[in-house]
Structure formats: structure tokens, C-alpha cells
Nucleic acid binder design. Sequence first.
DNA 1: TATTGTTATACTCTATAACTATA
DNA 2: TATAGTTATAGAGTATAACAATA
Lengths: 149, 149
Amino acid sequence: MPDLSHGATDADVAAVNSLRSAVMRLGRRLKHQRVDETLSPTEMSVLGTLATCGSATPGELARKEHVQPPSMTRIVALLEAKGLVRLEPHPADRRQKVVTQTEQAETMLEESRRKRNAWLATLAEGLDDEEWAKLRAAAPVLEKLAHLQ
Amino acid sequence: MPDLSHGATDADVAAVNSLRSAVMRLGRRLKHQRVDETLSPTEMSVLGTLATCGSATPGELARKEHVQPPSMTRIVALLEAKGLVRLEPHPADRRQKVVTQTEQAETMLEESRRKRNAWLATLAEGLDDEEWAKLRAAAPVLEKLAHLQ
DNA sequence: TATTGTTATACTCTATAACTATA
DNA sequence: TATAGTTATAGAGTATAACAATA
């Protein structure tokens, strides 16, 4: 961790600038290089969360994805309409709902994983071993960063 | 580089999934944690590019930021209206224009760099030395990735 | 009274299509 | 005929505000 009590170094600031710029640009690319044309990036991200968490309430999903509750309402409704999630009443709190992914979603995720290999291949061609390793090492840190605070 | 000629390994695919999800989520956070409320992420990114490249044509900027030419027209117009860039005729080709950042933009970037330290500080509190190092190592690779192909 | 989720609405950003001017 | 940039328009995704139901 950089010594921020006395101000960040120029190199730290530069790294953050670079990181931010790259994340924004990469985000725009990813938006277009969807493996599944019928799902938005956030919808995919929600399915990914449900695949690991099992199930969650709309409020929990909104906090995880860093969107506002009304946005998650819409996203969950779209996923439900596509048959990818199931909405059930919360067992303990009748205000809340429980969102679970369907078997169809699992099948779809497996399929999209195969499709992703093509994009991965073109990606990897432009990176050497070392760069690839750096990317893999940073992936979990980026995930942590996205969830911090 | 992973052995993609015979298909990517599960670990490679998992890394890409994780990366994509993190980039999307982080991108949404960055959208809201703007250091300058009056500039969109892409506007900031364009200024960052101009700060390093010196000057560029709208077409070049569109390709770098991965937006379509009409979008860059709008972005450049907004930056010009804010007095942050100057538009001049291209010396050799009268179809093109040259976009250059103003002194005001440099002042603003310096100011925003100071503001960014606050966000950097809260960020760094949640990361240890090792994680921070991984992030710094990956930043240039992410930039490369954003520009590939 | 606070919290969960929804409805209604508006905004921001970007894209596509069609156009103008220049090469 | 091709290219750089613009104008006009539409769409996707998200936010805010106001509301209903439950805690």
C-alpha cells in the first residue's frame, strides 16, 4: 500500500489514472464483444453472481452490481422474462424476494463459456506469457476493488 | 500466453470471466466516483490521451477511445464548450481537424489529480502491498488490451 | 418510522443512417 | 469513389422521485 498519509506518489497517481482509463475503454469494448447478444453486461454479471452465491435478494444484487434498486428491478424482470432466473417469496420477510438462477441459465452459461474461448484466443495472441500472468494475477484484485466499501 | 491452439484451459476462461465482470463493475463505480462532476469518463479519458499525445484528430480520438465518430464529435464539442480543448484546421487535409488541449485543461487535470488522491487513499486502505503491486503491474497490460486489434 | 421493492419518468451516453465537404 | 467529420434520430442502460407493502 502506498504511503498515503503523506500523499500518494506521482507513480501511484499515474497508475490509478492509467487503470481508470483502461477500465473505461476496456468496458466499452466488452460492451460490444458480448458472447450472448441478448444479455447486457450487467445481466451477465448478475448471472455470474448467482452462479457463485446461489441465490440473493434484489437489494443484495443491486449493492453487489453497484446499481440502484429500481435498475435491479428492471434487470431481474428481464432475466425472469428470458427464463434465466426464478423469483420466489422470501421465507422470513414478506417485503423481500429471492432470486435464483434456473437450469436454463446454467446451460446458457456453459454455452457462453465455450463461445468466449474465441474471443480469448484473439486476445491472447496479442499478449505474451508475462502479460497474461500479470492479468491473471490482477483479476481477483480488480474484483476486490469493485466490491470495496 | 495460454495454449489456445488446443483450447483454453478452464483457469484461463475463469480468469477472463472474472476480469470481464470486475471491469464492468469497476467501470460503473468509476462512472459515479468522478473527480470532476462536469466531465464524463470518456471526456476525462480524451483529455488524458491529449495530455500524452499532444494533439489528435477527432477520428484518431474516436479510434483510441473505441467510440464511433459521431460520438467523438459530440464529446469534442462539449470539451470545446468548456474551454478544455481547441479545434484547429488540419494543416495538410482540409477535411480533418486538429484537437489540442488548452492551458485550462492542464490546470484542471492538475487539480483533479489532487482530488483523486482522496479516492486513492480509501482504495489503498483495502489493499495490501502485494495486491497493490499486482494492480500496478496489470495497468499497462489492461491499457494494451483496450487498444488491441 | 424505517426498509424493500416497484412504478413512472427523465437523463446520459453511444450508435446508426444520411448528409456535406474534401481527397 | 473513398474518407473525415457532422447532423438528426433512436436506443440501451441507469438514475431520481414518488409510492406501496411490510417490518
